[in-house]
Amino acid sequence: IDAAQIVDEALEQGITLFVVNNRLQYETSRDSIPTELLNKWKQHKQELIDFLNQLD
């Protein structure tokens, strides 16, 4: 699994991931984030931050 897949998966569930001051953040209108997704974010945090920083 790679960062792009995780970002896409989040988007499919209505969650936008982004980076502020090198910290992973998210925006969503959902009430809660699925635990499975949160765990993936934690496991791949640095990859996600690097990936999202490249997009900007």
Rank of each mutant, 00 (worst) to 15 (best):
I1R: 07
I1S: 10
I1W: 12
I1M: 12
D2L: 14
D2P: 09
D2T: 15
D2N: 14
D2E: 09
D2S: 13
D2M: 13
D2K: 11
D2W: 12
A3E: 03
A3T: 05
A3D: 01
A3L: 12
A3V: 13
A3H: 03
A3W: 07
A3N: 02
A4W: 10
A4M: 09
A4D: 03
A4R: 14
A4L: 06
A4F: 06
A4T: 04
A4K: 14
A4E: 07
A4N: 06
A4H: 12
Q5F: 12
Q5S: 13
Q5W: 11
Q5M: 11
Q5A: 14
I6H: 02
I6F: 05
I6N: 01
I6T: 03
I6M: 11
V7Y: 14
V7S: 01
V7I: 14
V7N: 03
V7R: 04
V7L: 07
V7A: 03
V7P: 01
V7G: 01
V7H: 04
D8Y: 15
D8T: 14
D8N: 15
D8W: 15
D8G: 13
D8A: 15
E9Q: 06
E9P: 00
E9M: 05
E9A: 05
E9H: 05
A10N: 01
A10F: 05
A10Y: 03
A10M: 03
A10R: 01
A10H: 01
A10G: 03
A10W: 02
L11F: 10
L11V: 06
L11I: 08
L11P: 02
L11M: 11
L11T: 07
L11H: 08
E12H: 10
E12T: 11
E12Y: 08
E12G: 11
E12M: 13
E12D: 09
Q13L: 14
Q13H: 14
Q13R: 09
Q13N: 13
Q13I: 08
G14D: 04
G14T: 02
G14W: 04
G14M: 04
G14L: 04
I15F: 08
I15K: 01
I15W: 03
I15C: 04
I15R: 00
I15L: 02
T16C: 15
T16L: 14
T16R: 15
T16Q: 09
T16F: 14
T16W: 12
T16M: 11
T16S: 07
T16I: 15
L17F: 05
L17D: 01
L17I: 07
L17K: 00
F18K: 13
F18C: 12
F18V: 10
F18I: 12
F18H: 09
F18D: 03
V19N: 02
V19K: 01
V19C: 05
V19L: 07
V19I: 06
V19S: 04
V19M: 04
V19T: 06
V20D: 07
V20R: 12
V20Q: 11
V20E: 12
V20H: 12
V20W: 12
V20Y: 12
V20F: 12
N21W: 05
N21M: 07
N21T: 04
N21K: 06
N21I: 03
N21Y: 06
N21L: 06
N22R: 05
N22L: 05
N22A: 07
R23D: 15
R23K: 13
R23V: 15
R23S: 14
R23W: 08
R23H: 13
R23N: 14
R23I: 15
R23L: 14
R23P: 01
L24R: 00
L24G: 01
L24A: 00
L24I: 07
L24W: 02
L24F: 04
Q25H: 15
Q25F: 15
Q25M: 15
Q25E: 13
Q25N: 09
Q25T: 09
Q25V: 14
Q25W: 15
Q25L: 15
Y26H: 04
Y26T: 03
Y26W: 15
Y26A: 05
Y26I: 06
Y26K: 01
Y26Q: 02
Y26M: 06
Y26L: 04
Y26S: 03
E27W: 15
E27Y: 15
T28A: 06
T28E: 02
T28Q: 03
T28V: 04
T28P: 08
S29W: 10
S29C: 12
S29Q: 11
S29E: 13
S29G: 08
S29M: 10
R30Y: 06
R30H: 07
R30N: 08
R30C: 06
R30M: 09
D31N: 09
D31G: 10
D31V: 09
D31M: 08
S32M: 08
S32Y: 12
S32Q: 11
S32E: 11
S32C: 13
I33M: 04
I33D: 02
I33W: 03
I33P: 05
I33R: 01
I33L: 06
I33E: 02
I33N: 02
I33Q: 01
P34L: 03
P34H: 03
P34Q: 04
P34M: 03
P34D: 05
P34R: 03
T35P: 12
T35E: 13
T35D: 12
T35V: 14
T35Y: 11
T35I: 14
T35K: 12
E36Y: 13
E36T: 09
E36A: 11
E36S: 10
E36H: 11
E36M: 08
L37P: 00
L37T: 04
L37W: 06
L37I: 05
L38C: 08
L38Q: 06
L38G: 03
L38T: 06
L38S: 06
L38V: 08
N39W: 11
N39F: 12
N39T: 11
N39Y: 11
N39P: 02
N39A: 14
N39C: 09
N39K: 12
N39M: 14
K40N: 04
K40M: 10
K40A: 05
K40E: 03
W41N: 00
W41A: 02
W41H: 02
W41S: 01
W41G: 00
W41L: 11
W41K: 00
W41I: 15
W41Q: 00
K42W: 13
K42E: 13
K42A: 14
K42Q: 12
K42D: 11
K42I: 14
K42C: 15
K42L: 13
K42R: 13
K42T: 11
Q43D: 08
Q43L: 13
Q43I: 12
Q43P: 03
Q43K: 13
H44T: 03
H44E: 01
H44L: 06
H44Y: 15
H44N: 07
H44D: 01
K45S: 14
K45R: 12
K45V: 13
K45W: 14
K45C: 14
K45G: 09
Q46T: 09
Q46W: 10
Q46E: 09
Q46N: 10
Q46R: 10
Q46I: 07
Q46F: 08
Q46L: 08
Q46Y: 08
E47T: 08
E47N: 06
E47F: 07
E47W: 05
E47D: 08
L48P: 00
L48A: 00
L48M: 03
L48F: 02
I49M: 06
I49K: 03
I49D: 01
I49H: 02
I49N: 01
I49E: 04
I49Q: 03
D50V: 09
D50L: 10
D50R: 12
F51K: 01
F51C: 02
F51R: 02
L52I: 07
L52R: 00
L52M: 04
L52E: 00
L52S: 00
L52G: 00
N53T: 14
N53D: 05
N53V: 11
N53I: 13
N53R: 12
Q54E: 10
Q54C: 08
Q54A: 14
Q54F: 10
Q54P: 06
Q54T: 12
Q54M: 12
Q54W: 11
L55R: 15
L55M: 12
L55K: 14
L55S: 09
L55G: 09
D56W: 10
D56P: 13
D56G: 14
D56Y: 13
D56C: 11
